[in-house]
Amino acid sequence: MQDTQLMKGILEGCVLGVIAKGETYGYEILSQLASNGFEDLLEGTLYPLLTRLEKNGYISCRKAKSPLGPIRKYYTITVSGKRYLNDFKENYKKVTVNADKVLFDECRYTQLKEGDENDGLQCNGGTA
């Protein structure tokens, strides 16, 4: 979560991806993302992000009583949200493929040049 600029865009798509699976709420989104490796994502980041998505019309929100009592916001993806998610997925694929190419090839190049396997492994680890 250190590279915030990179994470910001990716998170938006991932949150939208979680909501696209079905109606969900804040805590569940956090849990889902944490279980997929986004352990550092906190409510302080998630809530403004959800508000932004709602303002842009990508998700809609329904308020209902939770089993524990308080009013809970349940989020659903909208049609424009689905469209945005599809675009995001395509763009993400392209960007990652290209980035992988550049970074992976660069590592290979150094690996071959220096003939040191350890260096190459470090590079791969950094890329993944």
């Binding site: 804040g26 805590y27 956090l30 409510e43 809530y47 009013i71 916001k73």
Partner: peptide, 9 residues
């Protein structure tokens, strides 16, 4: 309200 629900959960 949102934070309350989250903390209670």
């Amino acid at each position: 309200m949102n934070l309350f629900d989250l903390l209670l959960t």
